[in-house]
């Protein structure tokens, strides 16, 4: 069984983002970029399926600027077999990404596509569900446990009130939640080996998809600032302030 793992290059989760002064977006120049944390979990899960003998090949795919190749190399160093890079310089929205991934899926014929539940830059949480819709496949979102059966997968999902378990027929889409696994670090020898693994490059046009955004971003602003608070000396002062000043208890 082939497993396809889409991975996104995003601002590193530890970076405090800065909004550009002209309000056109956030500052991306000279900022540390990394693989989206949820996608690391997807790659890890795919590799575990391979180690368990369930998956025969793991393909990492990324869409965007030339540097997305670094993100694919990271996935290859973790243990993915080969990469696909769809080169595009402009903004990509989840719908366009889902359409391109659909074309890749039709070409590669994986039985399972594992995506992160959301990217920490646009916080959209859409691509996996959209890809499932376009392919007419079942979806198991926010997965915290995956058990592969014959012709189906049993997936435990994180929902608001606790956990829910569903079975989904293969081929299927799974999106990962934080608790699915703990991603491994790539070792130096594996990073060296990953440099020899192949990455195919293509364009949105090769996949027959128009990547133009549907939404127009009018402006990006800083969120409202909180006023500076005060330090209290002890619990008695805290309770008194909450009762008499803030009047919240």
């Amino acid at each position: 069984m082939k497993v396809l793992v889409p991975v996104k290059r995003v601002i590193d989760y530890n970076v405090k983002v800065r909004v550009k002064a002209d309000q056109t977006g956030v500052e991306l120049a000279n900022v540390k970029m990394s693989m989206n944390p949820f996608d690391e979990i997807s790659v890890e899960e795919a590799i575990r399926l391979k180690e368990a003998g369930t998956a025969s090949e793991v393909i990492a795919v990324s869409l965007g600027v030339q540097q997305c190749q670094e993100t694919i190399r990271t996935a290859l160093a973790m243990g993915a077999d080969r990469g696909i890079h769809v080169l595009h310089d402009g903004d990509l929205e989840p719908l366009a990404v889902a359409k391109m991934l659909k074309a890749v899926v039709e070409k590669e014929q994986p039985q399972l596509v594992i995506l992160g539940k959301q990217a920490i830059d646009d916080d959209a949480n859409q691509t996996g569900q959209m890809l499932a819709a376009l392919l007419g496949w079942g979806q198991a979102t926010f997965a915290s446990k995956i058990e592969m059966g014959s012709g189906e997968a049993k997936v435990t999902r994180e929902i608001d009130g606790g956990l829910e378990t569903i079975t989904v027929k293969l081929p299927a889409i799974v999106t990962t939640d934080l608790r699915l696994n703990e991603p491994r670090y790539a070792s130096l020898p594996n990073i060296m080996k990953a440099k020899k693994k192949p990455i195919d490059q293509m364009s949105p046009a090769d996949l027959g998809v128009d990547p133009a955004p549907r939404l127009e971003t009018l402006k990006v602003e800083e969120p409202a600032k909180r006023e500076a608070g005060v330090k209290v000396a002890d619990v008695a002062e805290l309770v008194s302030k909450l009762r008499n000043e803030a009047k919240v208890i």
Binding site: V26, I120, L215, T217, V220
Partner: peptide, 11 residues
């Protein structure tokens, strides 16, 4: 967007 560190107005 960006974990609530920026607010985007979209049309």
């Amino acid at each position: 967007i960006y974990a609530g560190n920026a607010m985007a107005t979209v049309k």
